[in-house]
């Protein structure tokens, strides 16, 4: 698809490893949306992972090694748009910590200042108004903890959805409570993680919304996986689970 305007603003997109391996369509839709909004998109092939899995597991040397490769992969002074508040949070909030006192401190800090979560960039920077071609629908939004607290973009996501004329977006009860994914937490404390996921899934189901949306594929993996497991054991189908980028792309194309 050609760029809307030549000489338009240019952004990097950091796809995230989760999207790369499990949900590439979400990443693709994110880039298509940005192009639709009039922006040139660059996806450096050398990107891999923000390093958060190692960082949150206590392995800072290993996290730094991988993070340094990302500093190398995104050398230019361009905004970096991330379709994930969790990875975006790692880049923006934790890279300065990770590289403090190292020779890369300067460029890590510089990079961290250029990071945007997708809905944040679309709403607060581009002030993008999407044209909603879809039918009336009720969606439930799971704002991740990273979106809410690390990056402060929960309201941007809701605002973005609010710009779709026939979309009613609700949040579940106890919206601010964690879904229980927590990355390695799901592996280290599986019983607690499952209990939290079950409560969140119940609250989401109780909204009666047909579609579950979120900024973070980790949470969507957790919740979507819970719903799929319930469906497979005969408890009825849960909502469709989509990344906000996928949903937005559908809506502006009446799919």
């Amino acid at each position: 698809m050609p760029d809307s305007v030549s000489g338009a603003a240019k952004v990097y997109v950091f796809g995230t490893c989760l999207i790369d391996t499990l949900f590439p369509q979400a990443g693709l839709c994110a880039m298509r949306l940005l192009r639709q909004a009039g922006v040139r998109v660059v996806y450096p092939q050398d990107q891999t992972c923000c390093g958060q899995p190692a960082f949150n597991s206590g392995y800072r040397d290993e996290a730094r090694r991988v993070a340094r490769a990302q500093l190398d992969a995104f050398p230019e002074d361009l905004p970096i748009v991330v379709p994930s508040a969790s990875c975006g949070g790692m880049l923006r909030v934790h890279y300065p910590t990770l590289f403090a006192g190292t020779p890369d401190q300067g460029r890590a800090e510089a990079l961290s200042r250029r990071v945007y979560e997708l809905s944040e960039y679309l709403v607060r920077v581009l002030d993008w108004s999407p044209q909603d071609l879809g039918p009336q629908v009720r969606v439930v939004v799971h704002n991740s903890c990273s979106a809410r607290r690390e990056m402060g973009v929960a309201d941007a996501t809701l605002a973005l959805l609010g710009r779709l004329a026939r979309v009613e977006a609700v949040e579940p009860e106890r919206a601010t409570e964690c879904c229980g994914f927590g990355g390695t937490f799901a592996v280290k404390q599986p019983e607690m993680s499952a209990a939290m996921a079950a409560d969140k899934a119940d609250a989401i189901a109780a909204t009666g919304a047909e579609i579950l949306l979120g900024q973070d594929c980790g949470c969507l993996l957790n919740l979507g996986g819970t719903f799929a497991h319930r469906a497979a054991s005969g408890q009825g189908a849960g909502p469709r689970v989509l990344h906000i980028a996928e949903f937005l792309w559908e809506r502006i194309h009446d799919q």
Binding site: G15, T21, G27, L28, V41, V42, L221, H229
Partner: peptide
């Protein structure tokens, strides 16, 4: 308590090339 994640047939690195996005 959850279905297993499924690897996508083609990763984003490849799809981006097919889409013609600048690298």
């Amino acid at each position: 308590t959850r279905s297993a994640p499924r690897l996508a047939p083609e990763g984003l690195h490849r799809l981006v090339r097919e889409e013609g996005i600048d690298v």
